[in-house]
Design a protein around this nucleic acid. Structure first.
Lengths: 119, 119
DNA sequence: CCATTTGGTTACCCACAGGTAACTGGTTTC
DNA sequence: GAAACCAGTTACCTGTGGGTAACCAAATGG
């Protein structure tokens, strides 16, 4: 007799699917951090963002920003000055993540001394 | 003149550090999902967990559980029955993540139709 | 008696995330 | 006139996350 997956309550499945979907937008090492910076600091230029998000390479930042833009979490604005300046900011959709970011931030602060930090 | 990182408000830095620390516990593809299952369903055995977390390999589950245990988010209990049964459950520390998980779940449900799901 | 279950471990392997470094081309600063 | 800046792009390379599959030993199910 093959063991089947235990059936669980519908609302649990919905929540779990919710978590999965949310994570599909925030996967990888950097996205949540980039969004956090845009959320706490606001609109930023490429190089400023790079300086804020410590340790990120241009290539990686560029790629992550494209992903985030594709998911409509941020928008890129190019000012045709010389030299061009480019600014990134959260869309309204992106800003709707603030509750998640905030909760994570608060939790991190509250439990800092209990977290074993691997650096 | 070398450009320096823009100075930002202290509480912003604290929050950002909080986000970073939080993520250091939840990194990778699976941890958040495993915790979600333990949170919504409760204490589970290894194979049940494997059946719930769709697509995860034994090896990966085993490794992720060890990581989570090391960070004291879950505890492993081995009952010396024959054959051994092993149960995993969230610690109080692990349960303290519920606000984060819940927020992510809610957000995922609310914005489901706006999320471009890569599957 | 054969298959399946439990809770993993081990070996093998590969794709890809992500790091390093160099380069662009016009512009301002020292 | 040398150097740094901006917003990336390209080439190259490495680590590792994570997948597949086989295996264990005792016990239960059909």
């Amino acid at each position: 007799m093959k063991k089947e997956k235990i059936e669980i309550a519908v609302h649990c499945n919905e929540h779990i699917r919710g978590v999965k979907d949310t994570m599909s937008l925030l996967d990888g090492k950097w996205k949540t951090l980039i969004i956090s910076h845009l959320f706490y600091i606001g609109k930023m230029r490429f190089m400023d963002l790079k300086r804020q998000v410590e340790g990120i390479a241009s290539k990686t930042l560029s790629k992550e920003l494209k992903d985030l833009e594709m998911n409509r979490l941020i928008i890129r604005t190019q000012n045709n000055t010389m030299p061009v300046s480019v600014e990134y900011e959260l869309t309204e959709f992106g800003r709707s993540l603030h509750k998640i970011i905030d909760t994570m931030g608060e939790w991190g602060i509250q439990y800092r001394e209990q977290i074993i930090i691997k650096s």
